[in-house]
């Protein structure tokens, strides 16, 4: 029974790793803009796809070590959505704030 409980704790921690990172992303944005940005979930999916394709590419070239994982995270990290999102949303926030003042 104890072994089963420890196994479930380990499973839960892996699931919590995903939820924690995404919940922190939501909290970060909501704290400064008071808005909920639903796109973050799909951003995670997009990063998943990027990581998957890079990992598949790594498998094709037979990188059988931690290089695959590093490549997958490198692909998921600087995805092209971050720039348009970070540059347009503050501008849009300021615009809607100035409209609200008027």
């Amino acid at each position: 029974m104890a072994g089963y409980i420890v196994q479930q704790i380990l499973n839960g921690l892996a699931l919590a790793a995903v939820y924690v990172l995404l919940a922190v992303a939501f909290a970060l944005v909501h704290a400064v803009t008071r808005r909920i940005v639903f796109t973050l979930g799909d951003l995670a999916t997009y990063a998943s796809f990027c990581a998957l394709y890079v990992a598949l590419l790594a498998l094709v070239f037979d990188f059988r070590d931690y290089t695959q994982i590093l490549l997958a995270f490198a692909a998921a990290g600087p995805q092209p959505w971050r720039w348009p999102l970070s540059s347009t949303v503050p501008w849009w926030s300021r615009l809607s704030a100035s409209r609200a003042k008027r």
Binding site: L28, V29, L43, Y46, A47, F49, A51, G77, P90
Partner: peptide, 24 residues
């Protein structure tokens, strides 16, 4: 504006890390 921009970039990074974890 800059703080919000940095926040969005960080949040994007965190969401991307969550996506990468999901895949692996």
């Amino acid at each position: 504006g800059r703080v919000i921009a940095i926040t969005f970039a960080s949040a994007g990074g965190f969401a991307a890390a969550a996506g990468g974890i999901l895949t692996v």
